[in-house]
Amino acid sequence: MNSIFTLNQYQIFLNNQPLFQPLSTQLSTGELLAITGASGSGKSTIMADISGVLAPVFNSQGQIHLNGRDLRPLPVEQRKVGILFQDDLLFPHLNVYENLVFGLPGKWSKTEKKERIHQVLQQATLADYQDRDIATLSGGQRARIALLRTLLSEPDLILLDEPFSKLDKALREQFRPWVYDQIRQLNIPAILVTHDHDDIPKGSQTLHLEIQHA
C-alpha cells in the first residue's frame, strides 16, 4: 500500500497566536518524521490534533490526510492512528494477554488471536508473560508491551510521543532499535516527538519547531 500521510499548510494557534510557521510535509510507508523543539513549541499538540483529541484552547488550520482520508471530521476511533505515550498506559485491571487482545481487530477468531499474541510475545522475548499482572513488570517490559499493543491494532499511522524519555539510558539504547524495527515491519508511516537527537533514526525527515514570539 502506498500509504501517504500529508500535512498541508498546517498550523496551530493558541489565543489567535500561531505556535509555529505553517508546515507542509508528506510521509510514505515506512517513513518516519521526527519533530523536535523546545517545551511549549507545540510538538505534543500536533500529535494530539492528529489523533483527534486537540484541547479546546488550541485551534488548528490546514489539511491532515491519511491514505486519502481527511482526518478532520473523524472522531478518534475512526482515524486509525495509533499512539504511544511516554507513560506506557497499560490498562491496570487487565493482564498482559488481555491488554494485547483488546486492540486486536475483530476479524480474527479466538484461536488466531491467541496464536498471534503468543507469536509477538515470543518475538519480544516475553513468551511466558501472558498471564502476568501489569504491575509486576519492569519498565522495559511494560514499554515493549505497550508498543506491541499499539502495533497489534494495525493502525495506518503511528505517533510516538517521547516514547523513550522515561526509560533509563541503557534500556533506551536497547528499546529504540527494536521499536523502529517493529514499525518498519508493519510498513506504516510514523511521527516521533522527541527532545533527544539520539532518538532520531538515520535518514528520517526532521522538523524543528521554533517558538513564535508575538
Binding site: 489523533s51 483527534g52 483529541v53 472522531p75 478518534v76 476511533e77 475512526q78 482515524r79 486509525k80 492512528v81 495509533g82 499512539i83 505515550f85 507513560d87 498506559l89 490498562f91 483488546f102 486492540g103 499493543r149 499499539t150 491494532s153 493502525p155
Partner: peptide, 18 residues
C-alpha cells in the same frame, strides 16, 4: 486519565467496548 480512554479508542475503534 483520559489518555486511557483515547488509547482504548484508537485500539478498539468503538466507543462502547472502550
Amino acid at each position: 486519565d483520559d489518555r486511557y480512554f483515547w488509547l482504548a479508542l484508537t485500539l478498539k475503534q468503538q466507543r462502547g467496548p472502550a
